[in-house]
């Protein structure tokens, strides 16, 4: 009997893990795209583009992710728009991720010596061309390690989506615990699965850091 429920629990948790993975991927890819756009605005030296970007970043970095999920899930409903947990979680996590990625990448862009901007500018290149051909190829090298490192935070952040009723790994754990009353087993398995998702990424990030820190 007990063996039977162990396999049932594990099977259900692994099934739910796919939604954690999907949500993480959406947040990371979507956040990456939005983050890249914000990065261009944030480093453009154009004040009316920079200030709203800064406010956006401050908002998403300065408030709990849980509050952002609530705002998207309950807040948007106030305007008469029906929001599914999927939509709310995907959107909130994407925007939250974009704010952090923008700041990580801005640091990498600012680490590129000023002379690179001056040399490319003196060759009549526009801001977008400078970013595209001179600054980003160099900044990317130093950005890879912290970006992969941050993806671990995104995966762990998806756990909060359980609170608005999105069935991913954590929510599945809660439901299974309610059914089996074996909290230690259930949550130990949940934690183990998260670890199996996150550890390879942090290991990879560490390795990249060592490798890419050796300048050409």
């Amino acid at each position: 009997m007990s063996d039977f429920s162990f396999w049932i629990i594990l099977k259900n948790l692994i099934w739910a893990t796919q939604w954690t993975v999907y949500l993480s991927l959406i947040a990371f890819v979507g956040g990456g795209i939005v983050g890249l756009i914000l990065l261009f605005l944030r480093t453009s030296q154009v004040k009316w583009l920079e200030v709203p970007t800064k406010l956006y970043i401050e908002f998403f970095q300065g408030t709990p992710l849980l509050m952002q999920l609530f705002l998207f899930f309950f807040g948007v409903a106030l305007f008469g728009i029906e929001v599914s947990p999927w939509m709310a979680a995907g959107l909130a996590l994407t925007l939250w991720t974009s704010a952090f990625l923008t700041e990580i990448w801005r640091g990498c862009v600012e680490a590129i010596p000023k002379g690179q901007w001056e040399a490319s500018g003196s060759l009549a290149m526009s801001y977008i061309e400078q970013m595209r051909y001179v600054i980003l190829p160099q900044a990317m090298r130093i950005a890879i390690a912290p970006t992969v490192g941050f993806s671990v935070q995104v995966i762990k952040g998806t756990a909060l989506a359980s609170i608005i009723g999105f069935v991913e790994l954590t929510k599945a754990g809660t439901m299974l615990n309610n059914a089996t009353f074996r909290p230690f087993l259930v949550y130990a398995l949940v934690a183990l699965i998260y670890f199996c998702l996150c550890f390879p990424l942090s290991w990879f990030a560490k390795r990249l850091e060592g490798k890419l820190n050796v300048a050409r």
């Binding site: 010596p113 002379g115 690179q116 001056e118 040399a119 160099q138 050409r216």
Partner: peptide
Amino acid sequence: FQQFNLFPH
């Protein structure tokens, strides 16, 4: 420039 500022990549 004094510091060359070649694109290292």
